[in-house]
Each structure stands twice: as C-alpha cells, then as structure tokens.
Write a protein that binds this DNA or RNA. Sequence first.
RNA 1: GUCCCAGUAGCUCAGCAGGAUAGAGCAUGCGCCUUCUAAGCGCACGGUCGGGGGUUCGAAUCCCUCCUGGGACGCCA
Length: 546
Amino acid sequence: MNEIREAVLASELAAQAELPEIVLETPREKVHGDYSTNIAMQLTRIAKQNPRAIAERIVSQIRKERVYVERIEIAGPGFINFYMDKTFLHGVIRQISREGESYGKVDIGAGKKVQVEFVSANPTGSLHLGHARGAAFGDSLCNVLAFAGYDVTREYYINDAGNQILNLAKSIDARYRQALGLEAEMPEDGYYGEDIIGFAKQLVEQDGDKYLSWSEEERLKFFRQYGLEQELAKIKRDLERFRVSFDVWTSETKIYEAGEVEAVLKELTDKGQTYEADGAVWLKTTPYGDDKDRVLVKNDGTYTYLTPDIAYHKNKYERGFDQMINIWGADHHGYIPRVKAAMQALGYSPDKLTVLITQMVSLYQGGEKVKMSKRTGKAVTMEDLMDEVGVDAIRYFFTMRGIDSHLDFDMDLAVSQSNENPVYYVQYAHARICSIYRQAEEQGINPLPVDQIDLGGLTLEAEFELLRKLGELPQEVAEAARLYAPHRLIRYVFELASQFHSYYKAERIITGDAQLTQARLALVGCVRTVLANVLRLIGVSAPERM
RNA sequence: GUCCCAGUAGCUCAGCAGGAUAGAGCAUGCGCCUUCUAAGCGCACGGUCGGGGGUUCGAAUCCCUCCUGGGACGCCA
C-alpha cells in the first residue's frame, strides 16, 4: 500500500495533502487479481485526466519486485489489479501456527476502555427470547471488541428499586395465598410467570402459612427481598448457562442508598436545567433535541424511572470509560433522546454513549408463529429455549443476523440435525479436521513443527483460496468491531467452513507423499484454529467429534 | 401526527464510510458414499435491489420524496 502511495506521488498526479485514502481491497472475482485499488478513479477530479491514463502513470511507477507482485493489470474503468506471487500466502500458515488462539487479534482499540451494558432485564421474571438475543449479541460484541484490542467491561444494571418490585412482592403474595388454597387476586400490574408460582410453592413447603400472620408491610417486605434474590439468582444461572458472564452488576437500590439520585437532581437544579410545573419537577431536555421535556419528580413526590437512570448514567460517565455502549430492545428506542439530553444537561459529551437497538424476535414452531402473552405468563423463556435447542444453536442463530432486522427464530430448524442447519455445518468442519488428525495419528504420522515443513507442495488454487481466507481474519475482526457487527464473523466462518468442506471432498489430506501430507495437515490445522477462534468469539463450542 | 427499524431470488437474509457481471443458505431439479466423518460435495434454476426523482465517471449503497410492514411515543418501568 505504501508502494502505491509512493507511486502516486512519484507520478505527480496529486499533492500529498489532497491524496485520498488509498484502499486496497480483495476483488470478488478472482480474475480481477488478488488485490485491487480504485485510486485512479478517485483521482479523476484532482488530476483532471481520465482514470485509465492515471492508472497507467501510477503503474509505471510501482516497483513490483519489492512487494511480491507478479503482475499488474489495469481493468474496467480504471481499476489497478495486482496479481501476487502466490507463495507469499504460505506465510499465513506460519503466522497462524505461531499465534494460535490469538490469531485474528488486532489493536484498533489500543486499550481504550469500553463499557457495554446489556440484558439488564428487570428481576421480576425469567429471561425470555428478547433477552436471549440481547445476551448473545452483547456477549459476542464484547468478545469481538476485546479481540480488537479494547479493554471491555460487561455490565448488568439491576432495576431493583421501582414500582415493579413492589408488584413482584404483591404477585408473590397472591400466589402464596393461592398455593395455600386461598382465594387471591393478582395485582393489576402483576407478574404471571411460572417462576413466581414456583417461588410461592417453595415458600409454602418451607414455612407453611406462617407469613399470613405477619403484617402486610412486613410480609410484602419479605416477599420483595425473597423475590429479588430468587429472580436474580435465576437470571444469573440462565446467563451462566448461556456462557455470558458480567464483570459488574450495578444495583439501582445501591445508587439510591449512596445518595446519587438526590445528588444528580440537585446538580441539575443548580445548573438551571429543571423547572417546576403542575406540581412536578421537569428536566429541560428539548434544548438537546428531545421532543418534550421530561418529568423527574412526580406531583406525588416520587421519582420517575428517568431520574435514577440519569444518576446511573452519570455514575458510568464518572468511571472514566472512553466509550459506553447500551444494548436495548426496540421498545426502548424512544428513551434514547432523553437520556442523551440529560447527559448533555450535566455537561457530558453525548458521543461517548452509544445505544444499540436490537429488533424484536419472533418464534416459529411447526411453521406457526408462537404467541406470547404477559397476562398468562405464557412466554417462551430462555431456559425453555436452552433445554429444547441447546446453547450453541441459539447463540449462533441470534448472532447470525444484524440487530436491525426483526429476527424469526425457527425452532424446528435450530434443533434439526440436518444440512439445513448452519450451526452444525460449521461445527462439522471443525470435527472433521479433528478426525483427520486422529486418523493421521493412527497411521503413525506425527505433525511436524511448521518451520520444518516444506509448504511448497501447496500449489492448488483451492489451497491458495483457503490461505487467502485464513489471512482475512484480522481485518474481519477489525470490521466487526468497528461496525459493532459480530454477525459478520458468522458469515466469515461459514464461508471458511464451506471452502474447507469443498477442499476436503476434492483432495485427500493424508496422501502417500509424506511431505505433502505434512503441508496439508498444517493447512487444515490452521483452518481448525481459525474456526475455533471465531466460534469462541460468538460463544459456540467447537466439538472434536460429532 | 412525530420518531426508530425494515422492504434485495419462492422463503430467511448478507452486501450499504459508492466501484467491475448484486451474493449465501433453504426450497426445487439432476448427479456423487470400496479410501481421512454424506451433519458432506458438485451442477442447474431463480432478481425492474419497494416506486419515483437527484448527486456522481460510477448508486442496492449517499440525498429528497412517496408507498408498504413492524415497533415506540406515560407524572409506567
């Protein structure tokens, strides 16, 4: 790339200052070479010449012997295509063998501190489908960011202070009475999940009807605490099983207890960002682009949800992250402007906070959309899903798509052990390579260290393509991190698996030629490493046998 | 009414800091198991990139506008 830059400058077409960024890409079509640049077309306006003429002048200045280039062609409207001396690709094998689990790491993050807050489901019920998508996406994103050189903190914010927790206590109260065979009506905004019926039964088994004799205040206080502990424990269990672990669990109650909510309210008031109207305290969010101002303190003196949330986000800002990412469900998108506005009102840069929105998930079974109902508690929980389809398939499917699209999750497909199921396709490639290595061992073939292998035998087009693909991992990781798009890696790993399966079908790895066998074992060993590395990033296991 | 997301092959989706003939899986059709795992491989079929304008040497990609589908618009959380 530097060679191109120098050639462009040497051809005196443009001054250094006005030189556009030189992009070297891998063309989709092989006939267009190994690398390609459109720099000549980009220079048309500056150099005031037609692109092909520009391309010719640039090419004449390139010293190709210095960069392993075999030949250069000018094609189409003015693309400059580079055809490499293919043996340079053998270096990929040496690199992967040397770096192993670390292969693919890049350092675009340069150690910057990134905090990612995700899932953060209210501890009032079991995690369900939508949370699973957030968990899969969030965790994969964190893995990718860490692999790209960021210092990542995973955080779960526990909303354990609002009205919803009182409703949880009341719901447990009602279920408790029902479990004792008494008449009891669920509260208006009650929680109807199976989990709560279970808690109530458990309480009856443990302690019988003893809570009936308590005062309502005492009883609800106890149920509240009990419910919170149980729900949170359940959430942690589910997430752990889903292979997601958080570095920090921040409790809303703790934020209250530390006086941060009152403090932030005072700070906003002192800064003249609030006013009183209709008996309530409002925050001026409209100057920062919100539709309307928002209430912080209701006319009954209690806080809205926004107020502690501002305190929480201030808390995050104060912890000194370079970047904060919130992953929210689509139903919270309208909430973004007011939180950002509040941060600006406090004097923080809104650019440090990025909110990523995951669209809804629909579940399909037997070709039918599965209906969910809060009222009856008939939602498919994350636990049900893990029982039925397994963690690998869920994580793969939920990471497979960009978060902007509504996602249809087909249960039948996810459980099917067939060619329709892409999870197995990728895992199978890994297992196959492991099998080849087992086979080699049985035949008494010991894989040699790479520096003792003559890779010159790898001359097939399929082998060069595999090597090229393997070589692309670092830039794929960088792109996935830059775009917050781990699904790109699924695409990548699927394509790699596909190329491997095709190669495996066409050529034997273990051949009569000992030297060639060593070279091919090294090659597929690298494929195995890369498959495992990517699967690890998306939280899917890489089985040795299937 | 305002805001967000989507609209690309029969279906589900990639591609979108502009680039060459728009890709993949599934479905459909036809082939391939005496040799390292057939949860596999090969071939074929399939598209006015929602419509219309604009910017550009070049637009699925950027801008404007319209249409369709989904979601959000509380002194709930």
